[in-house]
Design a protein around this nucleic acid. Structure first.
Lengths: 339, 339
DNA sequence: TGCAATATAGAAATAGATTTGATAAAATTG
DNA sequence: CAATTTTATCAAATCTATTTCTATATTGCA
């Protein structure tokens, strides 16, 4: 069987209390004793049982990560950096895809608490905010990732979504596009990106056509549907550019456009968001607003660790800079068509 | 504080032993008692502590999943289906990306055992096979996923890689390609795919040029490097088709080809493997050998569950069928060039 | 009715740690 | 050198379950 603290104690000729102190580096102790115990532990290849230690209220060395969908490359890439950083610190990560399903949200949160996760990283919007409020109230260490919702009083790591929406729209406007459709998700980040979209118009004294702001699910299919809906509108009003709130949507747009015989970027410019691997692999390569995934993932773990130490009292906020990566799906409007 | 078994026992007016029996549905008991305890548990919103229960040797309701890299869309998609299935069964999944790093392999396995994972899904090759041998010897419930290595005496879920290699190569040969480069990974699955590649040649009485079988890391960069290496060869010997062992490599090939002014599929046919989202989003869409990711993920969890019940003694083997999805990156050789 | 057989419930041991309070040993002080 | 303080160690309680064994209570059958 597994070596326990009792075995070590017996072998080293001390009590289990002494061994425990050596493990946790607490209390006073003769240097010779500490050394002897340490050696015995090594010799016997002893590792403390996390279960037993967790039972007494100690940490489980486990984090929870809630994402909408791990098969979305953006979250997969994010998960990778989080996992890397966590493992560096000796923590494991339990990943949960909520699928924007309130029932799953509830259940996963329950499971994570039952498993006594030391802290939870939330990169998924919650249908039911009261679940989060409950966590906050009970001081569960929490960091919200990519969700900079000011109504939530927790630590947050995200990009400046307002700026993200602004630079994308601004780029299109500067290229001469006048009719720009924006496709948003039903998520907090999108709200701010929409404001950025508005601000860009405002600064150039352009009026926003309200029906140019559409909403869709963050999937390729969602993008296709949107395109079809746009296409069904009055042909005269067809946009010359579409700004999608993530790469999946943008890819969907591109696919649908191809089916409809509309060439990109000649007839239609497209901008995505997140700058995932999909943006680099699509042809033409997708212009996209990049989030510094690695920095954000690393920061979110570091922040959560601090939060855990502070007992969920910290409430920090880290804002990163989005960056527009210009590739092949955007193009200036030809003067002829403008005139 | 949290409600414990003691609280429930006191409230229901029974001993903790009785409550435990109700929880685990063991032992005999008056129906009225069982009902009363059940009601009290519900009223008090009691959930048993997994830590305490794990301490006595019970399950932790946790699985480990080892993949080479969760940010590779193939494994992300696989992880999603595994996670879904596991959660249906009330299990959480700890995901670990080994990055083909022996040090990480060792550490992650150690962590999973320390956390008393009920079972481990391995979808990552191991540099150090002795680590796995050790697990097998100690009857740790194990399922190898996408790795049908006959030297390993464990449960396995994979596709028929031989067939996968065969149908891809066969398709190219039938299209009139005579000089087909195959890019493999250093993984067991690739070995079998290479045999399939050979068999396809054999059946058509074609000789395999040994230097047409190349090896690379499963990344876009790896694909690019390969292409450059091929290109550096004698121009006269340039292949008319490349069969890559995964989509990332194929995408890398396509990118590099573009840089070198070689058009696909006119000048060069490309086949990928895994049929990930990348295959559908690339332009032209990538012809790829599809693995039934959902079925495989689900099956691997089900198998692992059985394995757990059987105490790691089962040793089942499930082989799925690969399917060639023909898209836009493959094309028959023009007769003129053949003649 | 009496005794064996069975059903029901609980006391106590156990799992592997942490932590507190007590005690013994060593060091310090007057 | 005795009295006091400090240091080093351990016994025992605790955390929240599971499980075995024991003690009643109930039932069945002669």
């Amino acid at each position: 069987m597994k070596v326990t603290i009792y075995d070590v104690a017996k072998e080293a000729g001390v009590s289990i209390a002494t061994v425990s102190k050596v493990i946790n580096n607490t209390g006073n102790m003769r240097e010779s004793t500490r050394k002897r115990v340490l050696e015995t532990m090594k010799e016997m290849n002893y590792t403390p049982s996390i279960m037993a230690s967790a039972l007494t209220g100690k940490s489980t060395q486990t984090l929870g990560l809630l994402v909408p969908d791990i098969s979305n490359p953006f979250f997969a890439e994010m998960a990778k950096t989080i996992e890397d950083r966590a493992h560096e610190e000796g923590l494991s990560v339990i990943i949960c895809s909520t699928d924007a399903n309130p029932e799953k949200e509830r259940k996963y949160l329950e499971v994570l608490q039952q498993k006594q996760a030391d802290g939870i990283l939330i990169a998924s919007k919650f249908q039911d905010d009261t679940l989060l409020d409950d966590l906050i109230e009970r001081n569960v260490p929490l960091v919200m990732l990519t969700i900079d919702d000011p109504t939530m009083n927790v630590s947050k790591v995200s990009i400046d979504d307002f700026k993200g929406g602004f630079i994308a729209t601004n780029h299109l406007l500067n290229q001469g596009h006048e009719n720009i459709v924006m496709i948003a998700e039903h998520a907090y980040s999108s709200r701010m990106r929409v404001y950025g979209y508005r601000e860009a118009h405002e600064l150039m004294s352009r009026k926003v056509q309200e029906d140019n702001i559409m909403y869709a699910e963050a999937t390729i299919e969602g993008g296709k549907h949107c395109f079809e809906e746009i296409f069904k509108r009055n042909d005269a009003k067809l946009p010359s550019a579409i700004f999608a709130c993530n790469d999946l949507l943008a890819i969907g747009i591109i696919h649908a456009a191809k089916e409809y015989g509309i060439s990109i970027p000649e007839d239609l410019s497209v901008i995505g968001f997140d700058n995932t691997i999909l943006a680099t692999t699509s042809v033409p390569a997708l212009t996209s607003v990049s989030q510094p995934v690695e920095d954000m993932g690393k920061m979110s773990v570091d922040l959560l660790l601090k939060e855990i130490k502070a007992g969920g009292q910290l409430k920090d906020r880290q804002l990163f800079n989005p960056e527009l990566i210009i590739r092949g799906t955007t193009q200036a409007v030809k003067k002829s068509s403008k005139a």
